[in-house]
Design a protein around this nucleic acid. Structure first.
Lengths: 221, 221
DNA sequence: GAACTTGTTGGCGGAGTGTCAACAACAAGA
DNA sequence: TCTTGTTGTTGACACTCCGCCAACAAGTTC
């Protein structure tokens, strides 16, 4: 009556296993810099052979990319905040919302979006840039500026730049503790308002001057 | 009459050798991400044995840090731009100056200050943060705000955040080409003016309100 | 030319990663 | 229950990269 010998390891569905590994990896990458996290560490954390990581995710960097993507896929802004009120009100509400979502992700967010040093991997950069662009488009749309002038690409670039301010401010707040939440809110709101009020109109004017042909500048009181 | 056999390698003064290696390393780190540059590559580029890199710089990361430091040590702003005129004039001149210096460094600057992905090495981050702080102090001083209120630390943090906007904008300009130099100039100027005009006064007021219990702010103007 | 100083080399050992054939857990059929 | 098939999983091998260090040689001095 020998009971069937206990299995030496549990067999999971590919999706489950993938998810489990992804979680462990996300945790470790949030704690330590990329180079300081070995695939052996992740495998050990997940209780799995190292080779399995490659089987599911390919290269180590690919696994990292999955983690980054997952982190940057946040719920849409427009679903959470009403698009009404003055420009200032909308800006402040969206900043508020963003600070909230960041606060819940904390360290991992900072680590992933980190303005690190170690020369960026172009692929990683592409992923982040992509996410930034989506986020920028959403912001423009939310502010009601999506199709204000013809030079939409420039606007998106501007907003992506603004994203740099956002990330740096978040770092000062979350990691450094040198800024309070209110400080961050104030800084981000005023800067965004300034950009929309002062920079975009001037841009529109400049574009109109350069191009001779009038962009579809809808007169906005 | 055998002429003295040609030396198999040239013997240099430590400083010269160090400098030479540093230049090669800077070039390579500017072209490829950190992880993609092997010490073997650098050694080959410099025409030396790999071990020599460790002899002069210790770890590979230490060499990288040296490169970063060198890149971030730029000539002082105050030496190049007169500190006169209105706030707007001063801001615009300093932005102008900064864009000029960045334009000369180009790719390497972007790579080094890159808001990359690969989780940042804390040491690298510290170096960059240090340079950012110096740069922030200089900016405050240049704008004549160095000792305006007691909450100097918060101002510096704000300016460091602004540095995030600067870096992101530079990237859009240099690497992406999505913004023109004029766009960058406009965006950075307006944002900085907005911060100084709108955020700092409010900060001062807020600090004054809070300071019923005075954390350790101490000297107020 | 001999002896000394020290800039430089080349190879050793360790750590990390990608690959792959073999293995074992589980399901299904007899 | 035994057999067979599928496939999730393992473990080891080969390779690359890095830090270390003893031996070597370029240049200097007497």
């Amino acid at each position: 009556m020998s009971p069937a010998a206990a299995p030496r390891w549990k067999r999971l569905e590919p999706d489950q296993r993938r998810e489990q590994i992804l979680e462990c990896a996300a945790r470790l990458f949030g704690e330590r810099p990329y180079a300081a996290v070995s695939t052996t560490d992740i495998a050990k954390e997940a209780g799995v052979a190292r080779g399995l990581l490659n089987h599911y995710f390919g290269q180590k960097r690919d696994l990292y990319l999955k983690v980054v993507k997952r982190m940057l896929l946040m719920p849409g802004l427009e679903e959470s905040v009403p698009m009404t009120g003055t420009l200032r009100q909308r800006v402040e509400r969206s900043v508020e919302w963003y600070l909230d979502t960041v606060a819940t992700h904390g360290k991992t967010y900072v680590a992933v979006t980190g303005a690190g040093g170690i020369g960026a991997d172009p692929e990683v950069e592409r992923i982040i840039a992509e996410a930034d662009d989506i986020s920028a488009s959403k912001t423009l749309e939310f502010l009601g500026l999506k199709v204000e002038v013809g030079s939409d690409a420039r606007h998106r670039a501007m907003i992506r730049s603004y994203g740099g301010l956002v990330k740096a401010t978040i770092r000062e707040w979350i990691r450094g503790g040198t800024l309070s939440r209110e400080d961050a809110h104030l800084l981000l709101s005023e800067a965004l308002i300034s950009i929309v009020r002062d920079v975009f109109p001037q841009l529109a004017k400049a574009a109109a001057r350069e191009e001779g042909r009038a962009p579809k500048a809808g007169p906005r009181r």
